[in-house]
């Protein structure tokens, strides 16, 4: 495990899961990989398939329709996989707290979550900080 963690710290591959968000966190995630912030210099890269992912970035409240798909994606990801909830929606629902189409009170009722990054939307600096803190927990 220690060997694996040493490797994963150098190159984190993230997969972006949009679970009924308002698109804002998604756009800020794209902001991370473009010239403004450019997190590829830390070895963090956005990948197209969940089979290659080390970290899942989940945004949005999880609606009833998408909840089974999120579970399916989590099962498909190679373990160990880390899940980061981006935005206040994943923490407690934000303005959609009373929504009738919400599958769970927060994301960790659906799949296990390692870190939350609150904010509406969180600034790109906050996202980088969150992922770096997650890396710090790896021994």
């Amino acid at each position: 495990m220690a060997f694996y963690n040493k490797i994963i710290k150098k190159s984190i591959w993230v997969f972006h899961v949009s679970a009924s968000p308002c698109n804002n966190c998604d756009i800020e995630i794209l902001d991370l990989i473009t010239p403004g912030y450019d997190i590829e210099r830390f070895g963090i890269k956005l990948v197209g398939s969940v089979r290659h992912a080390d970290v899942l970035l989940v945004t949005g409240i999880v609606s009833h329709k998408i909840a089974p798909r999120i579970k399916q994606l989590y099962e498909q990801a190679p373990k160990p996989v880390f899940v980061v909830g981006i935005g206040t929606c994943t923490v407690g629902g934000a303005t959609f707290k009373q929504s009738y189409n919400k599958a769970g009170a927060s994301l960790d009722k659906i799949i296990p979550v390692n870190a939350f990054i609150p904010g509406c939307p969180p600034k790109p600096e906050a996202m980088i900080d969150g992922i770096v803190k997650l890396l710090g927990t790896l021994k």
């Binding site: 009924s20 308002c22 998604d26 609606s63 959609f96 929504s99 009738y100 189409n101």
Partner: peptide
């Protein structure tokens, strides 16, 4: 992506509704 804005809006005041509809799309 359905989150039920129209129904939530009925439980909010007019000023709160503005903040709610802001979050329809980022």
């Amino acid at each position: 992506m359905h989150r039920g804005h129209e129904k939530i809006s009925e439980t909010k005041t007019f000023t709160q509704s503005i903040f709610l509809v802001e979050r329809i799309c980022g």
